[in-house]
């Protein structure tokens, strides 16, 4: 099982770099994963990551992109609830990449 090192501590990930244990997540780990994804975290990025963690906490799944987009639109407004905005923040897919940074498993039905 591959690991990542953050602040001298080791965290277990799967082959694709997703955290194995949800509870391992913290902001430093998120920053580290973001760097490996070439994403420079801004407030806008954190807003999406925090939203995803809240969604997972409530529903126990990582949402599909379409569902994420809609839910973000509902909560943060239509200027953010659209795929263009989300793909600008996370070029390799908001669900996939943002979920990884948020320490969530890969979304169910992610194709």
């Amino acid at each position: 099982m591959p690991n990542i090192e953050v602040n001298g501590k080791s965290y277990e990930t799967d082959e694709e770099g997703y955290l194995v244990n949800l509870a391992d997540w913290n902001k430093d780990v998120a920053d580290h994963i973001a760097q490996t994804e070439n994403v420079a975290m801004t407030d806008q990025h954190w807003e999406v990551v925090d939203f995803l963690r809240g969604y997972y906490d409530e529903y126990q799944i990582a949402p599909a992109v379409r569902v994420l987009t809609k839910a973000i639109g509902k909560k943060l407004g239509p200027d953010k609830g659209n795929s263009q905005y989300l793909y600008e923040l996370f070029p390799y897919g908001p669900a996939k990449q943002a979920c990884k940074i948020a320490g969530l498993p890969k979304p169910t039905g992610c194709v």
Binding site: E58, Y59, P63, V67
Partner: peptide, 14 residues
């Protein structure tokens, strides 16, 4: 075991 019952409440969003 994972409690997947909260996920039924996500169905509306899908």
């Amino acid at each position: 075991t994972k409690n997947f019952s909260p996920t039924y409440r996500a169905l509306e969003g899908y």
